[in-house]
Amino acid sequence: MAKKHPQKPANLIAQNKKAGHDYSILETFEAGLVLTGTEIKSVRKGKINLRDGFARVRNGEAYLENVHISPYEQGNQFNHDPLRNRKLLLHRKEIDKLVGITKNKGITIVPLKVYLKHGFAKVLIGVGQGKHEYDKRETLKRKEQDREMARVLKNR
């Protein structure tokens, strides 16, 4: 059961705008991130890139892969690898649901947003189905039409 999430979290750190363009998001989940000390400091500074990231379930655990968190500037030899796989904290039922959904072809798990909630880093992951090129053009056309209508209504 997916929970309702706020549209714009108060402490939004990073957002993956390309995910909405490339995928039709079917369902969203909020997950905690397991981070090291220097990683959370970099995340709080906004030094995170979600663009090429994805999530994968392995051995009953969910991992966030290919998400770049820049090394902390004041860190020393304890700095982290920028592209390491990070564990996602989800309930067992949510992980089982993700496994069942992603067995279908063309379905992937993408990170949508990273934000702070009560001092902890959370990631909003979405189950997405890849769009075809003509779907992307249609979405852009619809957005342009909505903008044009809003502009006309504003000037009335």
Rank of each mutant, 00 (worst) to 15 (best):
129 Q>C: 01
117 K>A: 13
103 K>M: 03
99 V>H: 00
133 E>T: 13
111 P>L: 02
96 D>T: 01
114 V>F: 11
90 L>I: 02
121 A>P: 12
129 Q>V: 09
121 A>K: 02
123 V>L: 10
108 T>Q: 03
127 V>G: 06
118 H>E: 12
95 I>N: 00
93 K>L: 06
126 G>R: 01
127 V>C: 04
123 V>R: 05
135 D>C: 06
134 Y>D: 07
129 Q>I: 12
123 V>S: 05
116 L>A: 13
91 H>K: 11
100 G>H: 10
123 V>H: 13
121 A>N: 03
104 N>E: 13
125 I>Q: 02
94 E>Q: 09
113 K>A: 00
107 I>R: 10
109 I>Q: 07
127 V>R: 09
124 L>F: 08
102 T>K: 12
115 Y>R: 10
130 G>K: 07
128 G>I: 03
130 G>H: 08
126 G>S: 06
93 K>D: 12
116 L>F: 15
104 N>G: 14
125 I>G: 08
122 K>W: 03
95 I>R: 00
94 E>D: 15
94 E>T: 02
134 Y>E: 09
90 L>Q: 02
131 K>A: 01
106 G>D: 11
107 I>P: 10
110 V>E: 10
100 G>I: 03
100 G>L: 10
102 T>L: 03
122 K>D: 01
127 V>Y: 15
104 N>L: 11
94 E>Y: 13
100 G>K: 00
96 D>C: 00
116 L>S: 12
117 K>W: 12
112 L>D: 08
132 H>Q: 07
119 G>M: 09
98 L>P: 14
94 E>R: 02
106 G>K: 06
100 G>W: 09
106 G>E: 14
108 T>S: 07
108 T>V: 15
101 I>E: 09
115 Y>M: 14
99 V>S: 00
97 K>R: 06
94 E>K: 04
95 I>H: 09
106 G>W: 15
111 P>K: 00
129 Q>Y: 13
103 K>N: 11
95 I>D: 03
113 K>D: 07
110 V>Q: 08
115 Y>N: 11
110 V>N: 08
97 K>F: 00
101 I>V: 10
120 F>H: 06
122 K>V: 03
121 A>H: 09
116 L>Q: 14
128 G>E: 09
100 G>F: 11
126 G>D: 15
96 D>K: 01
131 K>T: 04
134 Y>M: 08
111 P>V: 05
133 E>R: 14
100 G>T: 07
102 T>P: 14
133 E>K: 15
117 K>E: 07
134 Y>F: 07
101 I>D: 14
130 G>Q: 04
116 L>T: 13
118 H>V: 04
116 L>R: 05
123 V>T: 15
97 K>E: 06
120 F>S: 00
104 N>M: 06
119 G>S: 09
93 K>G: 08
105 K>N: 15
121 A>E: 03
115 Y>V: 14
108 T>G: 02
97 K>A: 02
111 P>W: 10
94 E>C: 02
106 G>C: 03
101 I>G: 09
97 K>G: 05
116 L>M: 15
119 G>H: 03
105 K>P: 13
113 K>E: 09
90 L>Y: 13
92 R>G: 00
109 I>T: 11
111 P>R: 02
92 R>M: 01
129 Q>S: 14
121 A>C: 07
